[in-house]
């Protein structure tokens, strides 16, 4: 009866208990946010213990939900503590600023992300774009990127309806969904990068 699943579940649940106990004792608001990011890991691990393809299809939404809520809450924290006007130092490391690495690595990551497409590609491409943005100064095409993300979202919804109501055109659905989600996730996460400093 004590198969691999139950052993893993027991240990992961114990680590969730430890995380929740720390959350119980913590008073500082930012520490609380860090610990909540910690307790997300046991929940993802419980999904991963499922071990089928379905597990993977459940992990991806779980990951995106986690980072989305974290994004909203961190901005609420900054607003609530009145820290919006505070300047934030960028990256001042000579190796990163002067060398070619900040150009090559983002180029590789963005290219690879476009090849991957879907959620994974969106996250990888956004990581590359953020690294480029913070090592080379900020962008100012805020509205444009936001609009691209909105159009991509509409493309994804259209592909969903293609899958549901015209399943014989599944090929168009796959292509639309892959490109739509790629652009959407990448654009949203890149905007996080341009939100680094303060509003204009």
């Amino acid at each position: 009866m004590w198969n691999e699943y139950s052993v893993g579940l027991a240990l992961v649940m114990i680590s969730a208990v430890i995380g929740f106990l720390a959350l119980l004792r913590e008073q500082d608001d930012l520490h609380r946010l860090l610990i909540i990011d910690l307790v997300e890991i046991p929940s993802l691990a419980i999904i991963a213990l499922l071990g089928t393809d379905l597990a993977e299809a459940l992990i991806l939404p779980g990951l995106v939900v986690g980072i989305a809520e974290l994004l909203a809450l961190s901005q609420i924290y900054v607003t609530k503590e009145g820290l919006r006007k505070r300047p934030v130092r960028g990256l001042h490391i000579e190796v990163v600023e002067r060398a070619h690495a900040p150009v090559i690595i983002p180029a590789l990551l963005v290219g690879y992300g476009i090849v991957l497409s879907g959620f994974t590609g969106g996250a990888v491409a956004a990581l590359g774009a953020i690294f480029f943005v913070i090592s080379r100064g900020s962008t100012d095409s805020y509205e444009l990127v936001e609009m691209a993300s909105g159009i991509a979202w509409a493309a994804w919804i259209a592909s969903f309806f293609v899958f549901m109501f015209f399943p014989q055109y599944w090929y168009a659905g796959v292509m639309g969904a892959a490109v739509g989600i790629l652009v959407k996730v990448a654009a949203k996460m890149t905007l996080v990068g341009s939100m680094w400093g303060e509003a204009e």
Partner: peptide, 13 residues
């Protein structure tokens, strides 16, 4: 292997 150093550089900031 390419992503892990980026995460470290973010922490360094």
């Amino acid at each position: 292997a390419l992503i892990a150093p980026l995460s470290t550089i973010f922490i360094l900031m």
